[in-house]
Lab assay of single mutants.
Amino acid sequence: AVSDRLIGRKGVVMEAISPQNSGLVKVDGETWRATSGTVLDVGEEVSVKAIEGVKLVVEKLE
């Protein structure tokens, strides 16, 4: 699937994400809805860990 190529890629949070609410991330110039187990603020760099349906699962870049 086209989304599989995104796993491991870096992105930037465009709309804040929390465990309760999905947000938006931009990866390779495309905007995706994303979820995370932690709070991520706009502008934070993330990496794509998995894909669930049409949402990316991301975590903060260390």
Rank of each mutant, 00 (worst) to 15 (best):
1 A>M: 10
2 V>T: 14
2 V>Q: 07
2 V>C: 10
2 V>M: 09
3 S>I: 11
3 S>E: 15
3 S>Q: 12
4 D>K: 05
4 D>N: 08
6 L>C: 03
6 L>W: 05
6 L>F: 06
7 I>Q: 04
7 I>V: 11
8 G>I: 02
8 G>T: 03
9 R>Q: 14
9 R>T: 06
9 R>E: 07
9 R>A: 10
9 R>P: 02
10 K>V: 10
10 K>L: 10
11 G>S: 02
12 V>K: 07
12 V>P: 02
12 V>A: 07
13 V>D: 00
13 V>T: 05
13 V>Y: 00
13 V>N: 00
14 M>A: 09
14 M>D: 05
14 M>K: 08
15 E>W: 05
15 E>D: 08
17 I>G: 02
17 I>S: 02
17 I>V: 09
18 S>P: 04
21 N>Y: 13
21 N>H: 12
21 N>L: 14
22 S>D: 14
22 S>E: 14
23 G>I: 02
24 L>T: 13
24 L>V: 12
24 L>Q: 11
25 V>I: 07
25 V>F: 01
26 K>D: 09
27 V>D: 00
27 V>M: 04
27 V>C: 04
27 V>K: 01
28 D>V: 07
29 G>K: 06
29 G>C: 06
30 E>I: 05
30 E>V: 04
31 T>G: 06
31 T>N: 12
31 T>Q: 10
32 W>K: 04
32 W>Y: 14
32 W>S: 03
33 R>D: 15
33 R>E: 15
33 R>W: 15
33 R>T: 15
33 R>I: 12
34 A>L: 00
34 A>K: 00
34 A>D: 01
34 A>Y: 02
35 T>P: 01
35 T>A: 11
35 T>K: 06
36 S>W: 02
37 G>F: 15
38 T>K: 10
39 V>A: 11
40 L>V: 09
40 L>M: 06
40 L>Q: 06
41 D>F: 12
42 V>D: 07
42 V>E: 07
42 V>K: 10
43 G>E: 08
44 E>S: 14
45 E>M: 13
46 V>F: 03
46 V>R: 00
46 V>N: 00
46 V>L: 02
47 S>P: 01
47 S>A: 11
47 S>C: 06
47 S>L: 13
48 V>T: 02
48 V>R: 00
49 K>F: 05
49 K>T: 12
49 K>C: 06
50 A>V: 03
50 A>G: 15
51 I>S: 04
51 I>F: 06
51 I>Y: 06
52 E>G: 04
52 E>F: 07
52 E>A: 08
55 K>Q: 14
55 K>C: 07
55 K>H: 14
57 V>C: 04
58 V>R: 00
58 V>A: 02
59 E>T: 10
59 E>Y: 09
59 E>G: 08
60 K>H: 07
60 K>Q: 06
61 L>H: 10
62 E>G: 08
62 E>Q: 13
62 E>P: 08
